[in-house]
Amino acid sequence: MSNRRAMLTMTGLHRALLRRTGGRLGRQLGGMPVIELTTTGRSSGQPRTAILTVPHREPGPHGERLIVIASRGGDDLQPAWYLNLVAEPAVQVARVGEHPRPYRARTAEPEERARLWPLAVAAYRGYAEYQRKTAREIPVVILEPLEP
């Protein structure tokens, strides 16, 4: 069963909070930093922006790699942003109050997921519940900054 309406409502409220407070409120959620991920719509070709939490960060060759989880609250459907980045991995990432930077997105390989999933669950236990709610394996996505 899809929870699309609830997810869209929560995202809209979060965007409004960020906009109204100039990013003073809402830049973190549950202790995790919040980012705006802009993908290219796989059907429309238009920019699509999602607000996501980052449960884990780690050093990369060109800056901090960001780990995000394509959970959609445990829905059986993949998030649209995830399907978009699978179709076109060139994305933009903006931390609240910063200009977007180019990143390359990819789904973690099985051995990477085995290492990263527990770190994400440690940051937010809800991910484990989301995984129990759905038959699909929830993807772990690695966002790697491109060279400056």
Rank of each mutant, 00 (worst) to 15 (best):
G41V: 02
S44T: 10
Q46M: 11
Q46E: 13
P47L: 11
P47V: 11
R48S: 05
R48E: 10
I51V: 15
I51Q: 15
I51L: 15
L52F: 07
T53S: 11
V54S: 08
G60A: 00
H62A: 14
E64L: 07
E64W: 07
R65G: 03
R65C: 10
L66D: 06
V68H: 01
A70P: 01
A70H: 03
S71G: 04
S71N: 07
G73E: 09
G73M: 02
G73I: 04
G74T: 12
D75H: 01
D75C: 07
L77G: 14
Q78W: 13
Y82K: 05
L83C: 03
N84C: 00
V86A: 05
A87E: 12
A87L: 11
P89L: 02
A90G: 13
V91E: 06
V91R: 03
Q92M: 13
V93W: 02
V93S: 00
R95V: 14
V96P: 01
G97M: 08
G97V: 07
P102T: 11
P102C: 12
Y103P: 07
A105D: 11
R106T: 09
T107Q: 10
T107A: 09
A108Y: 04
E109Y: 09
E109I: 12
P110M: 06
E111N: 15
E111F: 14
E112S: 08
W117K: 00
P118C: 07
L119K: 02
Y124R: 09
Y124H: 07
R125M: 14
G126E: 11
Y127F: 03
A128L: 04
Y130T: 10
